[in-house]
Amino acid sequence: MNIVIECQNLWKIYGKIVAVKNVSLKVSEGEIKLLFGPSGSGKSTFLRCLAMLTTPTKGEVFLRGEQLTKENAELDKARARIGFVFQHIWLFRHLTAVGNVELGLKRVLKLPRQKAKERAMKALREVRMEDWANHHPAQLSGGQQQRVGIARALAMEPDIMLLDEPTSALDPELTGEVIDTLRDLAKKGMTMLIVSHEMPFAREVAEEMIFFDEGTVIEKGEPERFFTNPRSERAQKFMARLIKRTRRE
């Protein structure tokens, strides 16, 4: 299997805070992996290191075998091939939905106007947002905004999508539409590393679940095992809490 993204012994240290501690991980073509763990455990920081949005303190990152953690690595080009969806959504506020999606197509991939527009509209259709193409983010609901965020990453036709808790900023009644969008992507065979606590969804699509705590991987394995019999005590406790919360909702 072709490895799309890989990291080896990755660390990120902010002064005295060790946000990411010696993490190694691979995601292969077509795979979906799901990362989860308590708040503040370093999931966002880890994902950002993978996309080289922050420079890791130590360790290596490879995108399709090309080392990103070396001097003179072409990071802008690499980032264009990694679709990133942000926890706090973060659309460009001065641009419409289609403007958000077009920006990378025009300015990074250098597609001509008409081509960029067509491809942006296609991506918006895939997240069922084509009717809202000319609205500004402020006129959209959180769920709609996040779907535009997904379309923006998707339109670049990335090698992999990294999604950082795409539903955690949303009201519970709006998470469904975003999860549906992710389900569609999964069906199309998109390679994804998703940070999420949407457990039914995880069980359905993930090949592997990775439990993260205190900046490092505590346990990884098939979803079924996490739901029935996690090995580590920390994962057991965390799963129990999550399942209880899901039932309540």
């Binding site: 949005l53 264009a80 973060w90």
Partner: peptide, 12 residues
């Protein structure tokens, strides 16, 4: 955030 997102798309 706006800068981070732009960089994530591959803009210099």
């Amino acid at each position: 955030d706006q800068m981070i997102v732009a960089r994530s798309l591959g803009l210099s």
